[in-house]
Design a protein around this nucleic acid. Structure first.
Lengths: 306, 306
DNA sequence: AATTATTGTATAGTTATTGTACAACCTACC
DNA sequence: GGTAGGTTGTACAATAACTATACAATAATT
């Protein structure tokens, strides 16, 4: 909600410097107005305030402070004993896993509710639910878990994620997204999590879900004026039609941003490779920073590391 | 009650600016005299005062402050339920239908939320959501609605139903249910509604969802000690395997209650016919009364008309 | 001591946002 | 009917931000 100068004054750091920090070290990623002006949130301000303390009071060079910040952010999300409790993600995941494999709805929901009260909601999804889904997937593959159990677990997960997604207020002036899995694809947890991620940022996401046919997608893009498409695909056998559709899509809508997720894109070559996004949220944050930074140049090719 | 200059003086903001705010950001909408002069109410003044605070004291640009205001107002209007309204199911369904076909998540959820505040929740599902789903299904069949729209609508419905289902407290001493659609079957709204119905009665329902394979179902029944199975099937081509599995199931678990739903069972003969339940909730209530009355004699054959 | 890297700041050339001025006309009200 | 005050629309100036590049000042390294 704040302009760069308001923030600069509140911090006592010139705006030029803030821009340099952002550009050089990717230290915050304020939203932009239609015209490209930075809009800082209170959270952004707190981040910058912390950085200023490190730099001004503790004499740490900004490059190091930025690294520390990244570490801190990743640690908060990766640590097994989150700040507020002495229960670890693993413990909670183990309990939930047991409840789910026993088809115990009541206990499963109770554990998830408890998790939400103990941990940050995104950590619940990424550090409790996702590991369980991965584990169940693997164990089904090894024959240790029944397909019905896998069914039950992913249905449960989907439910809890979608329930959450719709609670985020969206800013309808921000670019819209469409999320879908192509035909035959039924694994869409990643799609859901990415939907939540974008919705949390304030983007409206049109969730078309698993097994969406390519037909009519263009109409939908036109109709909804979506600017970002997220496609999830796990089976590499359907890479060809996906690629074909993507080529066409970019021809029709040159400014469309495309994001690809799922195992199928793991071993893919350029030009698709630059559009692939890995499953972890830290990468998503980095990607988002980059996309928003280059808002007027929607190509994702000029992504940088760091 | 106030003219623009009165307000301008009270705020310390020139009238020109107020008009610009109104014109550019739609920030207030004062009533007009017959001749077009603006008439501000005290409420308008308070709104403008709040805006002035954001802009002058907090350093938020007017464009952003206006957005914040809109969001605040939306939240307020969501919580202020217009209880006195005499909206019909049809009207509400028509509005919701429009929002859904336009992929308008925000509006769709707003209508459903409004519906919950106006009507009994079960009526919302059975008299608003179900008619929409039927209509969309038919119109898709007639080529009037895209498959992606159908997708979007049923995903939306599923989400809202499941969200509700889990809120009912279940009595774990009551007989458990398993709900599933056999392989190839993806239409499971009826299954969901029946799940909600049973859960509301206090039964725990293990929702296995669409396209559940028959393999291992016996194990699950044994493990969960479920006493009731609900199967939904729309495609009559898969009636044979369904019947075959049911025969086996009754052999293994003679006390199992079986309920069949979906179009596929419409024209079926005995002994399946007596297990078929139509889609309307009145029939469900009647059926439930009967089953519970005859609890010690789990056969459903001796159903009476009530 | 010289070289290189890091970091803050300055500047140029644009573009966006926002407040204000003005013309031409209209309304309220004594 | 006159005057003070209101209307819409367009125009414009004043800020304020943007990107990109350049350039000292300082710190680290060879």
């Amino acid at each position: 909600m704040f302009t760069i100068n308001t923030i600069a004054k509140r911090l006592g750091i010139p705006a030029v410097t803030l821009r340099a920090w952002e550009f050089r070290y990717g230290v915050v990623a304020p939203a932009r107005t239609g015209g490209g002006h930075r809009i800082y949130t209170e959270e952004d301000f707190q981040t910058l305030l912390w950085l200023k303390e490190q730099v001004v009071d503790r004499g740490i060079p900004i490059s190091q402070a930025a690294k520390l910040l990244k570490q801190r952010q990743e640690e908060v999300s990766k640590t097994n004993k989150p700040l507020t409790s002495n229960v670890s993600y693993e413990e909670m995941a183990a309990n939930l896993y047991d409840a789910l494999l026993a088809y115990d709805n009541v206990r499963a929901h109770a554990y998830i509710d408890l998790s939400f009260s103990l941990f940050h909601f995104e950590d619940v999804f990424h550090h409790i639910l996702v590991p369980i889904l991965k584990r169940v997937g693997e164990e089904w593959h090894d024959g240790k878990v029944l397909i019905a159990q896998e069914h039950f677990v992913s249905s449960f997960a989907k439910q809890r994620i979608l329930e959450f997604v719709r609670l985020f207020p969206v800013d309808r002036t921000m670019p819209k997204c469409i999320a879908f899995c192509p035909p035959t694809e039924t694994h869409h947890i990643g799609l859901l999590l990415f939907t939540m991620f974008m919705q949390k940022k304030g983007h409206e996401v049109i969730y078309l879900g698993p097994s969406t046919t390519y037909t009519h997608l263009f109409e939908i893009i036109t109709e909804t004026q979506a600017e970002l498409i997220f496609m999830s695909l796990t089976d590499p056998r359907y890479l060809k039609p996906a690629q074909h559709w993507l080529d066409e899509a970019l021809e029709h809508f040159p400014h469309l941003k495309i994001v690809l997720g799922g195992l199928a894109f793991d071993q893919v070559d350029e030009p698709l490779k630059s559009k692939v996004l890995k499953g972890n949220i830290e990468d998503w944050e980095r990607w988002y920073t980059n996309v928003m930074r280059n808002k007027k140049n929607p190509s994702l090719k000029d992504q940088e590391k760091g």
